[in-house]
């Protein structure tokens, strides 16, 4: 193995770990921010807003993530020059925004109708009914599926390597092109994903168990 040790491979591939984490965290946070107005529009009384939200959510989820990344990186770059990392962040944020909006929508829909009626009976304004009574409970319901979505976002972030973002997979490919054995290299990459993903999925199960104790659904 001409002087390649497992330690150097680990540190070489591990150099991409921080980018993978940045991709996951930033697009999860940005996606959550995008998801709020989308979920509000999706549950609105106005039909136009509802259809608009359904259209945006369906298109974001219907086009495969890889195709989104290629459209943003190769398709839009003649207009606005984008580096791979911002392009990937935009794409993954859009996609996670759409998935999280569906989670938030399910959260809002699953708050018991009686809660809103009770708030109304107490004379709260519609705005207060939503933000003080419905929304806090909806967040609790939406939390477990959103936490488990974070795990799949971590794996989706690997697609960013295809447009040249220097994440774990990209660094692994670099090591292979330098002559390291591919099976070993990609096994190390897999181990790195598991190192982040397993704690994350335990955390999502923990969130689920906490919320289960707290929330009364329909």
């Amino acid at each position: 193995m001409n002087g390649i040790s497992i330690e150097t491979l680990f540190s070489g591939i591990g150099a991409g770990l921080s980018i993978t984490v940045i991709l996951t965290v930033v697009s999860f946070v940005a996606g959550s921010v995008l998801a709020v107005p989308l979920a509000l529009a999706r549950t609105s009384h106005l039909r136009v807003l509802r259809w608009l939200a359904i259209g945006i959510i369906d298109i974001c989820r219907g086009v495969p993530p890889l195709v989104w990344l290629l459209i943003i990186y190769y398709g839009i770059s003649p207009l606005i020059a984008l580096e791979p990392l911002p392009a990937a962040l935009i794409g993954l944020s859009l996609i996670s925004g759409a998935y999280l909006a569906e989670n938030f929508r399910a959260g809002i829909d699953n708050v018991h109708k009686g809660q809103r009626e009770a708030a109304m009976a107490l004379g709260l304004t519609p705005t207060h009914q939503f933000w003080r009574v419905v929304a806090p409970q909806a967040v609790n319901i939406a939390m477990p599926p959103s936490a488990s979505y974070a795990v799949s976002l971590l794996k989706d972030s690997a697609k960013a390597s295809i447009i040249g973002v220097a994440d774990i997979i990209f660094m692994a490919q670099l090591e292979v092109s330098r002559g390291a054995p591919a099976v070993l290299v990609f096994s190390i990459a897999a181990v790195l994903y598991l190192l982040v993903g397993i704690p994350l999925s335990y955390f999502s199960r923990y969130v689920d168990s906490v919320v289960r104790r707290k929330v009364v659904t329909v």
Partner: peptide, 18 residues
């Protein structure tokens, strides 16, 4: 827990050496 892309690359680049 592993991205599909890692599995694809492992097999595609790894199997020929075997």
């Amino acid at each position: 827990g592993i991205p599909l892309l890692a599995v694809i690359y492992l097999l595609y680049f790894g199997l020929p050496s075997g």
